[in-house]
Write a protein that binds this DNA or RNA. Structure first.
Lengths: 167, 167
DNA sequence: ATAAACTTTCAATAATTATTGAAAGTTTAA
DNA sequence: TTAAACTTTCAATAATTATTGAAAGTTTAT
């Protein structure tokens, strides 16, 4: 496998993994392309490389910038805007975990808490609802807290954690 | 908020969370319904409660059974099949984590490993590709290993882990 | 102020994914 | 063996989500 083949395979694999961490295919592919690029790329470059439209490129770049994964880079003397991706995988992980926690997990925790606090009318079904939503609330809250703790330790978090846990 | 309102809210909230852990809305809703139900439900019951078609119900129940989250329960003297969900959130977490690791994370790890092993032709771009796919490979592998370790400790895994990590 | 170089927006369209419902299939009881 | 009770399958359709491309917007140089 040569460089070009490997690059294509990387972009398509990483793109298909996108939905797993909650971003769409094009967005993941743009990020993948920038992630392995040795220099900042213009919108034209990205469009040409991924064969996607200008509008699509623009919108997805915007989203990636909102997430803080991609940044604009202005090259002196150049009119075009150039883009680069965060290159440190640890930092990438931190950003994604934090964003997903905020956007998706927190609201669910709130609802589960609310539901587990409804008035117990003494019926079996109400007791079950309270019990189970409470269990999910505790689990979700704990998992979220743990992920954030792990992810906020900037250095070698996974390695460190593994050593502590597995030993 | 009374029981009925709480039930509806729970099912819809949990349903919307489905995509986050990789299952579709109807599937998540069926699981949610069974999760808080005090007895096993028939296909008719599920269809009526969630207002979804027979085919949809059948297909999604099948998938949930494939995942090992829902089990058939045959009630003596009854012709219909009845369904129940795993009720223990820890066990639920273990099943989901294991399945997702197997179906989605493992294949990506394999590809990343393959890509990080291409021949270094000495060019900067190839070096960068190798370096970055290797970094992602290591991260993904470590994260996956850690999740599986955590999730296989059957008892109080999150609590235990938190104590170790935060202290 | 004007025009060239560039980016963003968004209505239209395409692609994907979920859902339906009726026909085909299966199981059980008599 | 037959028929009733039930489940599964799958082609058609609906709903959702992603993508395009051209018009509108913005910035910069002169």
């Amino acid at each position: 496998m040569n460089y070009e083949e490997a690059k294509i395979k990387f972009i398509s694999t990483w793109g298909s993994l996108g939905p797993l961490w909650g971003i769409n295919k094009a967005m993941a592919q743009i990020q993948a392309l920038l992630f392995i690029s040795t220099q900042a790329l213009s919108m034209e470059d990205i469009m040409a490389e991924l064969q996607i439209s200008r509008g699509n490129t623009s919108m997805n770049l915007r989203q990636l910038m909102d997430w803080g994964i991609v940044t604009k880079e202005l090259i002196p003397g150049e009119r075009k805007e150039y883009f680069t991706s965060e290159k440190d995988v640890q930092e990438l992980t931190r950003i994604i975990a934090k964003e997903r926690s905020r956007r998706e997990i927190q609201p669910v925790i709130k609802v589960l808490h609310e539901l587990s606090s409804i008035k117990d009318d003494g019926t079996e079904k109400t007791k079950e609802l309270i019990k189970q939503t409470k269990a999910l609330h505790d689990l979700t809250l704990n998992a979220d807290t743990m992920i954030n703790k792990l992810v906020n330790q900037k250095q070698n978090w996974i390695t460190k954690s593994l050593i502590k846990l597995i030993k």
